[in-house]
Computed example of a mutant assay.
Amino acid sequence: MVQRQIETRVKRKTVILVLAIIFWGLFLLLNTWTESIEKLMYLHTFGFKWVSNPDFLSFFYFNDFTAFHPEFIKVKLGHFVGFAVLDFLLFNLIKSHKYAIGISFVFAFITEFVQLFFGRDGRFYDLAIDSLGILSVYFVIKILKA
């Protein structure tokens, strides 16, 4: 009887984590696909614009890094926190830092690269910020377990 209750709790926790990961991933993708992050944040609207032949070299542009817009810090913090949350959820599901970091990093790369096809500016430095969020979860968990 007790064993069955434990198994039920574990299954319930697993289902909740899987659903949380799916919803969080969809949330990150919505932010990736929307044409204007500012319209999403303030007007709560999103639109899609497909670019069939994006400038792939723009992924490596750093010249816009110096052109801070009013929401720059908020958007970059969103990158950091968004992928930190994803990594934390994945780690709690699979209990492996290596795999959670790997999956989170691949997802971060895909979201940045795919932005080029949606009229957005996917950037390598955004991938670096995403990665810092991912790795921060690893170090915080290591420190807390020590």
Score class of each variant (00 low, 15 high):
W50D: 11
L30M: 13
F62S: 10
Y99R: 13
V137N: 01
K39I: 11
V137K: 00
F60C: 11
W33S: 12
I134T: 00
P70S: 12
L116D: 03
A20I: 02
R9C: 12
F109D: 04
V2W: 14
I22N: 00
F68I: 06
A146N: 15
N53Q: 11
F118R: 05
G82A: 00
G122R: 01
L43E: 15
L135G: 05
L28N: 05
G47F: 09
R9H: 14
F118E: 03
F27N: 09
P54F: 04
V114Q: 02
L29N: 09
H97R: 05
A67C: 09
F113R: 02
T34D: 07
I22R: 06
V2S: 15
K145Y: 06
K98T: 13
F59C: 03
D64F: 11
H44C: 01
F60W: 13
M41H: 12
I110K: 01
N31Q: 13
Q3I: 15
F91C: 08
K142Y: 11
F139P: 07
K74V: 15
V140I: 11
T34S: 05
G25W: 09
F91Q: 00
Q3K: 15
Y99G: 03
I134N: 01
G122E: 05
L40N: 09
L90W: 06
K142D: 06
F113H: 03
T111H: 01
D87T: 15
S131W: 07
L40I: 02
N92P: 05
W50Y: 14
W33Q: 11
F62M: 09
H79N: 04
I129N: 04
D121G: 13
K11P: 03
D126T: 07
F124R: 03
F46D: 08
F27S: 10
I37S: 14
E71Q: 15
A100G: 05
G119M: 01
L93N: 00
F88Y: 15
K13R: 15
I6W: 10
K39T: 14
P70L: 09
F83E: 02
F105P: 00
F59Y: 08
F80I: 01
S131G: 08
R120L: 02
S96D: 04
K76A: 07
V10H: 04
G82P: 04
F48Y: 11
N53C: 08
S58P: 01
A108K: 07
I6D: 06
K145S: 07
A128L: 15
D121P: 09
F91N: 06
G122C: 04
T111Y: 06
N53R: 11
V75K: 12
I6K: 10
Y61S: 12
Y61N: 14
L89E: 03
G78V: 01
L90Y: 07
F27W: 13
V140K: 09
L127C: 07
I110Q: 00
I73R: 01
V75M: 12
I37P: 02
Y125P: 04
A20D: 10
A128W: 12
F113L: 03
V51N: 13
S131T: 12
F91T: 07
V106L: 09
T34I: 04
K98E: 13
V85K: 00
G102I: 06
Q3F: 15
